[in-house]
């Protein structure tokens, strides 16, 4: 087990979906991982960066490094926040070799939640159980930016009573894209409706995602248009013991 593992909780989880953070805590505890929640953490800065405010994003990056670089591993239940730290931070400091080096050092130690469980801890069976069919949506930043798509599937398959089924166009974007979802609502909702259709077609009882943004987007779409169809974050899914999620 690693010495010092820190949790980095995305803003969306902190403010809107705190139960995902709690699920992360419980799953890690079940696996005997001692995690720290550094109190001074704020935000990865993805919102301002994706808008094009690179200078402002540097403030976020600098603060993140100050808070987290003393840890051996940083775990985050979001692919896009992880990718921001891992891939975008180094590129923000092309003109500052010292900061770039700090960002690069950090890049090797930040992990998305499922990636951390499988690749770092070597865990496949988390002791979760859920009886039914589960489909997994490959979030863009997880699958294409971080290359994480086998890890969550491995964890889902290992859950007791769970059958992993195929989601058509499973790696196609759900249409969230942060500000995109409100700047281009017609396109965004057309995209999420295509995603929901794939879920319905898959025959799954539950959709699992690794990205809080996708969860908000798909979840609120389903709630309005297909009430009863459930979507859970991978941490919530792994927290399930006996079919009922751990909310």
């Amino acid at each position: 087990m690693m010495n010092k593992t820190a949790l980095f909780i995305p803003c969306s989880v902190n403010l809107l979906l705190p139960w995902i953070g709690e699920a992360v805590d419980r799953v890690l505890k079940r696996l005997d991982v001692v995690s720290v929640y550094p109190d001074r953490q704020t935000c990865c800065g993805q919102m301002v960066y994706n808008k094009g405010f690179f200078n402002e994003a540097r403030s976020f990056a600098t603060h993140f490094l100050d808070v987290f670089e003393s840890f051996d591993a940083v775990v985050c239940p979001s692919g896009s926040c992880t990718a921001m730290v891992k891939h975008r931070y180094p590129s923000l400091f092309d003109d500052d070799p010292k900061m770039k080096q700090r960002a690069l050092d950090m890049a090797g130690r930040v992990f998305e939640f499922s990636q951390y469980l499988v690749d770092v801890l070597g865990v496949t069976d988390t002791g979760a159980s859920f009886s039914g069919k589960v489909a997994y949506h490959d979030s863009c930043h997880l699958s294409r930016d971080l290359g994480v798509s086998l890890q969550p599937r491995t964890l889902i398959r290992a859950a007791q009573g769970t059958e992993l089924v195929v989601l058509n166009n499973g790696d196609q974007c759900c249409g969230f894209g942060g500000e995109f979802s409100v700047s281009y609502p017609d396109i965004s909702t057309a995209m999420v409706s295509a995603k929901a259709q794939s879920y319905l077609d898959s025959g799954a009882d539950l959709l699992v995602v690794g990205e809080p943004g996708c969860l908000l987007n798909i979840g609120t779409y389903l709630e309005k248009n297909h009430p009863g169809k459930q979507v859970l974050h991978i941490a919530e899914f792994l927290d399930c013991q006996g079919g009922e999620n751990g909310r």
Binding site: N14, P18, D186, T220
Partner: peptide
């Protein structure tokens, strides 16, 4: 406009009483 853009075909997420940070502390 931000709310109506989001709720075009989605529900508006409700604000939980406590943040993760508060729950953890």
């Amino acid at each position: 406009p931000l709310v109506s853009a989001w709720t075009l075909k989605r529900t508006f997420p409700s604000l939980p009483p406590k943040t993760y940070r508060d729950l953890r502390k």
